[in-house]
């Protein structure tokens, strides 16, 4: 059995946020913190947009393709009509692959962000030294991202 922790709901009638944590710059809205957050947001959103774009270009194009070239419906792949093979089976490995690759990339972005916030906080000296080393742990120094 997994260890269980009692959790309470979020504060519902106060301004959200958990107070300035170890994120120093980012929480306190210093210019440099703003730059970090914007770059992380842009990076993650760009990644999401690329995945969605790929889905639109592959899956999303299918109805149009079959609308423009209806004779494709009679084509066969492995003894079955091509639409049944592609939409009935081929789609699912594609979706899984896209999801799996997305998770790898997005976690790499987060490690990079953690690394950046940790080391920059050290040099600017805004966050306490203990905190910074604490946050930096677990980051693979050899990670090229």
């Amino acid at each position: 059995m997994v260890e269980r922790v009692r959790v309470t709901g979020p504060p519902r009638h106060t301004a959200a946020g958990r107070g300035a944590g170890r994120l120093g710059d980012v929480h306190q809205q210093t210019p440099i913190g703003d730059v970090y957050l914007r770059s992380l947001l842009r990076e993650q959103l760009g990644l999401a947009a690329r995945v969605i774009g790929l889905v639109v270009l592959t899956l999303g194009a299918l109805p149009l393709v079959f609308h423009l070239w209806p004779e494709l419906a009679a084509r066969e792949l492995a003894g079955l009509p091509v639409a049944w093979v592609v939409l009935g089976a081929g789609v699912y490995p594609l979706l899984l692959l896209l999801g799996w690759r997305y998770v790898r990339r997005v976690e790499r972005n987060e490690r990079y962000f953690a690394d950046l916030v940790g080391s920059a906080g050290e040099s600017v000296g805004l966050a306490e030294a203990d905190d910074v080393t604490g946050t930096g742990s677990g980051v693979d120094p050899g990670d090229p991202a």
Partner: peptide, 16 residues
Amino acid sequence: HARRFLVRLHTPESLA
């Protein structure tokens, strides 16, 4: 608090 809220949504737990 919109900005702070977005920080929380996008910050990995290892930092927060």
